[in-house]
Design a binder for these strands. Sequence first.
DNA 1: GTTCTAGAAC
DNA 2: GTTCTAGAAC
Length: 206
Amino acid sequence: MAASGPCGSKRKNESSVEGSSSNKKPAFAWNKGLLASMDDPELQEYVDERVVIIKDKYPKAKHHFLVLPKENIPNLKSLKPSHLDLLKYLHKKGKEIIHRTDETLKFRLGYHAIPSMSHLHLHVISQDFDSPCLKNKKHWNSFTTEYFFDSKDIINMLKDEGKVQLDSSKFQEMLKRNLRCHVCRKEFSTMPALKTHIKVHNYRIT
DNA sequence: GTTCTAGAAC
DNA sequence: GTTCTAGAAC
């Protein structure tokens, strides 16, 4: 059978023979998915006493990892100065997984300003953005505008100001901006056109 | 975060 | 007619 991974064209739900009394979707708790993924040995790329690294379930590039602290930190806003060491540790572990993956490929390590999923997670993502899971404007802009904060900048913010306070009013606008190539800044009117274009760039560290 | 799909855009 | 986007999901 066709091994259609994530984001391959998916069939509609065949009315399965679950025989359960309810067909309602678990629309609640979708944003808690990271907690389950963290604890799933199948998904764990790396584990130690402080962090878990998993592959993003819907990778937006050839390589896309999430580095999560075991400590329950809901989001950037809940970071305290006492978390500085932990944040640096997440960064260090993120760099390590890059080197174990492909050290000739460009990567960024960073955080979404307003993540959809609860539980602090550091994105480690290669800059090719070559993936069938990267489908829409929100996906694109969340990784290529200032919606994406470099890990280093977050660490410095916490160090200098004792907290990470972001002006939440401007982030919704960023996600709706016109599509622009992150390398040459050329503008495109549709996602398919952009996705075709970005293949011309070289994402190797030369 | 994703799926699904109406209707806009082409 | 087909491609593509964007909003609802109880």
